[in-house]
Design a protein around this nucleic acid. Structure first.
Lengths: 221, 221
DNA sequence: AGCAGACCGATACCAAGGTATGGATCGGTT
DNA sequence: AACCGATCCATACCTTGGTATCGGTCTGCT
């Protein structure tokens, strides 16, 4: 797969470096119809799927896609502003990377957006390659975040089936206590501790002490 | 200790909420002599020690204090700019919280500073209470960062005395392998593995498997 | 040459971990 | 009433972990 680059003008045609997770989407929120279309075409030209919304309400109504995504967000819009949406997403627990795009920004607003976790803040008119670079970086980040979160979520899901007593025992294990010490603290016998411990290990699918401890650490018990 | 607040004007006189670590310092870098003095007086009035420098070079020459600190930094100065200093500190590994203070900021510069990890970006003229709040927050953060880093550094220091073979064994332990499995992988006997393992445990001051695993995780072996 | 330290091994012993099997109570559900 | 799951206890058995004490080789440094 030989790639010849002849001119700067062709840059937007080059494939995205790492094809990313393959399935991802760029969410565009802007009240300007023409601009939405321009952005959509830009992303399409490099093979990035995108969805466009004319307002924050429209996006929220649609809901967030369950795949790696990032948001290209206009700061000033009729109705809820970009900052509002950012705050809304944060309290919803949706940690989609947000890239602000605006023509009329002042420094305090910029600071507020960045402190709230915005990935970048680009002025309109935007340079296409800069936007594409930022977007692909954002998609990559979101993909990685999702991967690590999935692993965590799986452990948490397994942990839901733990009985109170089992978590008591696990806490002791994580603290490095001996079975007999755990037994003393809980007022039960060492044998029972072993029972709970092996039961907990089975539920968390841990075949080693090391794995068990790491999972308990992750659960924050 | 009853505190009566009668007027907004007295706000700058109220003591800092959490006395912080007791010993901390605010680093002021600004080329304006009067402004440095004004800031210094402001911090003094609330009991915050501060040091002022007329340029980034002056600060670098002096070196960073080894206690919780934060930096109040002018963006535009003759010689190296605030952004330069921020980058310089970053590559030095000094993670002092930086608060930018400037009268002439544009959005791209703000974004750059925030992406580079600035804690805040306040416009001149600055509201005193806002600056004080930001500074005390920064000092608190730096204090917490130092605490956790100290614990980590201690483990890393201890880990330096580990022999290559001992780290090999620890890697196996962290992966949840049995001693005999580690022995097989390393091509040695189980007895030798036990030896290295106990030796490593002694060096890392771990009195339990759980503790050992957590420390190995921290070391990123 | 002498020494320190990393590295490897063995035997022996005891403590701890882990599993299997069997049995018990209690509270809540169907 | 029958059942299930959480909790608890016990005996027995084997594996693993951990330590001590003894021994050895090799490298690098003084």
């Amino acid at each position: 797969m030989l790639e010849v680059r002849v001119a700067q003008a062709n840059d937007r045609m080059r494939p995205v470096e790492a094809p990313l997770p393959g399935d991802c989407v760029v969410l565009i929120v802007d009240d300007d119809d023409d601009f939405r279309e321009t952005l959509g075409d830009l992303f399409t030209s490099v093979g990035l799927p995108s969805m466009a919304f004319p307002s924050t309400a429209a996006l929220l109504k649609n809901g967030l896609p369950d795949k790696p995504s990032c948001m290209v967000l206009d700061l000033r819009m009729p109705g809820a502003s970009g900052l509002d949406l950012q705050a809304r997403l944060a309290e919803m627990g949706a940690r989609v990377p947000v890239i602000f795009l605006t023509g009329y920004a002042d420094v305090p607003t910029t600071v507020r957006a960045m402190k709230a976790g915005a990935l970048d803040f680009l002025p309109k008119p935007v340079r296409e390659q800069e936007l594409l670079d930022t977007v692909t970086d954002a998609l990559r980040r979101d993909h990685e975040r999702r991967c690590s979160e999935d692993a965590d979520a799986e452990v948490r899901r397994l942990a839901q089936s733990l009985t109170p007593r089992e978590t008591d025992v696990l806490r002791g294990v994580s603290r490095g206590l001996l079975n007999k010490q755990i037994a003393f603290e809980l007022g039960i016998t060492e044998i029972t501790v072993k029972m709970h411990r092996s039961s907990a290990g089975r539920k968390l699918r841990s075949n080693s002490v090391a794995d068990l401890i790491k999972k308990v650490e992750l659960l924050g018990l």
